[in-house]
């Protein structure tokens, strides 16, 4: 009896801690007052201003574009890595391969961002490309660190699933490529979608690496938001938060659905 009381209390307090700040943020987004913290009355004023704020809308479109493209590339390459690590025995310099595909997971973003920026500058000095930084350089950087996240999901799923299915198909006369496209990929498809969704949100959420590799015409949403809230509060950002939280939570639920689907 007593331990179940402790259990409920712990769960309640932890969830309260996790959700309280998000609820506060959403609550104040409906505040009429320009001063965020002084409640004046319920209003959708800031949502209206948000949708008329061209800078934020433009940044949002750029961010979505970069996130969708880099998630797609990262998923293709990440699936290849996951597949290679589990199914292909001969990988030259395998430790180096593992190093390359897992280090971005633990490398602080700041170091990654700095290395990408210095790389692009050096590359430009040597071959004259990329002449300026912008959406392309953010895209390349995002693909690079999202690959690792996709690879780890695919690797886990391929390790889980029974290799006999693939071998049976081969015994029945399917060749290597046909097994991959007809058997393996369809089976791990939910994980591939989950990997894409994860890469998409990581790219959409990234501020540090994008700040290093950005250039003219490539202010992503986090860069714009950060410049608005670095020194103070902004009622428009509150409204944006509420919308973005809602959208990302939906994506998160989809991720959860696809990632779990395989296990059952």
């Amino acid at each position: 009896m007593k331990s179940s009381v402790i259990k409920s209390t712990v769960i309640f307090l932890s969830l309260f801690f996790l959700y309280f700040p998000i609820l506060v943020l959403i609550f104040y987004s409906f505040n009429e007052n320009k001063r965020v913290m002084v409640w004046k009355g319920f209003s959708l004023r800031w949502y209206n201003e948000l949708f008329n704020n061209e800078q934020i809308i433009e940044a949002f479109i750029i961010s979505i574009k970069i996130a969708a493209l880099s998630a797609t590339f990262a998923t293709i390459l990440g699936v290849m890595i996951g597949y290679s690590l589990v199914r292909i025995r001969k990988i030259p310099f395998k430790s180096f391969y593992i190093f390359l595909s897992s280090t971005p997971l633990v490398l602080p973003e700041l170091i990654l961002g700095l290395s990408m920026l210095l790389f692009f500058i050096s590359l430009n000095n040597v071959i004259g490309f990329p002449s300026s930084r912008g959406q392309l350089t953010i895209f390349i950087s995002h693909v690079t660190f999202c690959i690792a996240f996709v690879a780890i999901i695919i690797q886990a799923r391929l390790t889980d699933f029974n290799k006999n299915i693939e071998e049976a198909a081969m015994d029945l006369g399917y060749n290597y490529t046909k097994v991959l496209y007809k058997i393996t990929l369809p089976i791990i498809l939910p994980s591939i979608i989950a990997g894409w969704l994860l890469a998409f949100t990581i790219s959409l959420d990234d501020l540090v690496v994008a700040s290093f590799t950005t250039g003219p015409g490539a202010n992503t949403l986090p860069i714009v938001v950060f410049s608005k809230v670095r020194l103070g509060l902004s009622p428009e950002v509150n409204a944006l938060s509420a919308i973005l939280m809602f959208a990302l939570v939906i994506i998160g639920l989809f991720y959860f659905y696809f990632n779990k689907k395989f296990k059952h």
């Binding site: 769960i11 969830l15 996790l18 959700y19 309280f20 700040p21 998000i22 506060v24 943020l25 104040y28 965020v36 913290m37 949100t201 959409l204 959420d205 501020l207 986090p222 938001v225 950060f226 809230v229 509060l233 950002v237 509150n238 944006l240 938060s241 973005l244 939280m245 990302l248 939570v249 994506i251 998160g252 639920l253 991720y255 959860f256």
Partner: peptide, 23 residues
Amino acid sequence: LLVLVVIPFWSSFLLRVYAWKII
């Protein structure tokens, strides 16, 4: 509970920090 723990993690990092600035 697992979904409830993961949801905040999926919402924007920058905005969750910003929430504490308000609090």
